[in-house]
């Protein structure tokens, strides 16, 4: 099964990038690969390079990787309640990374842990640092995860669906927090999500994935104002929006995403695509350059603007 197939993307220093796609499109697997956290067996990275600051992370030893993982690249997972250890206090869990990577002694690590909790906006941080994870709400737990991610001043944070299991108001708080921290520390961010709506405001560039492949990539404004891949167009058009008329007809992407072990021939999206032509059924489209940094893997991407215009008139 090819969970991720021939995927390339990059993140500049201090930049925030979104990786968007539905369940099982390979977005989380690509992130875990960066961290070399794919369990083997069964998973194996069969080819490619993951260059971090000029070094190929796939070629370095496990020992070297350990100094990168958590230290230079940190990860925030989707479900804070399952990624925190329930039987250890928050303080102990934060100290673990601080002592290991930054070589602080217990006293200094404890102070640093409290400071980090304050930074991510946990009220009464000095008292609550000795609490257990279950004593915090979901939103607070995710703040603790972010604090952990930040503990070694990483250059890159990979946030895998960081707000998915949380309420809208808490979601807004957390995204705002992540964005402020980026501005403050210049940390680059990869935000993995299935919700195109939440990322619009916070990222510089968007990568859209479908069935293990990149289908479109570009600067945020271009992706939202002039999407070129039918899947991206569908994703954007299918969400009800507060600023649009209530009874607006939604764009429906028919069918289901394909099983990754049984991908259709040609472009993987063609069975669900309104614009598919014969060529789409036979050949796999490469990424076409459409503008500065803007690429889409669709044979019809160049004529997409005209196609959409015609549809609007009809």
């Amino acid at each position: 099964m090819k969970a991720v197939n021939d995927l390339s993307y990059y993140v500049n220093k201090g930049e925030s990038v979104a990786v968007v796609g539905e369940s099982a499109c390979g977005k989380s697997v690509s992130a875990l690969s960066i961290m070399r956290l794919i369990p083997y067996p069964p998973g194996i990275i069969v080819g490619g390079e993951i260059i971090f600051k000029g070094k190929d992370l796939l070629k370095i030893s496990e020992q070297e990787m350990q100094s990168v993982r958590g230290n230079q690249i940190a990860m925030v997972f989707q479900e804070p309640s399952t990624s925190l250890n329930p039987v250890l206090t928050v303080s102990l869990q934060l100290r673990e990374t601080l002592e290991l990577h930054r070589g602080l002694d217990k006293q200094a690590a404890e102070e640093e842990a409290t400071k980090l909790l304050k930074l991510v906006g946990i009220p009464d941080a000095d008292k609550r640092v000795t609490d257990y994870p279950y004593q915090f709400s979901g939103g607070m737990q995710q703040r603790i995860m972010i604090a952990m991610g930040l503990s070694c001043n990483p250059e890159l944070i990979i946030a895998d669906e960081p707000t998915t299991s949380l309420d809208v108001t808490v979601q807004a708080q957390l995204l705002e927090l992540i964005d402020n921290l980026r501005a403050q520390f210049g940390t680059a961010i990869i935000l993995i999500t299935h919700n195109l709506g939440i990322v619009a405001r916070y990222v510089d560039r968007v990568n859209v994935m479908y069935a293990g492949k990149m289908v479109e990539t570009g600067p945020t404004d271009d992706i939202y104002s002039a999407p070129k891949h039918p899947y991206t167009i569908g994703l954007i058009g299918s969400v009800p929006r507060l600023d649009m008329p209530r009874k607006r007809k939604l764009y429906v992407i028919d069918g289901l995403p394909p099983h990754l072990a049984r991908l259709p021939g040609g472009c993987s999206f063609h069975p669900r695509c309104h614009y598919a032509i014969d060529r789409c059924r036979q050949e796999v489209p490469a990424l076409y350059e459409l503008g500065k940094d803007h690429m889409a893997a669709c044979f019809r991407s160049q004529e997409m603007e005209d196609l959409l215009k015609k549809e609007r008139v009809a």
Partner: peptide
């Protein structure tokens, strides 16, 4: 609650 709902259009 309403202001926390994102609109999928950065502009």
């Amino acid at each position: 609650l309403l202001s926390a709902v994102p609109i999928p259009d950065p502009a």
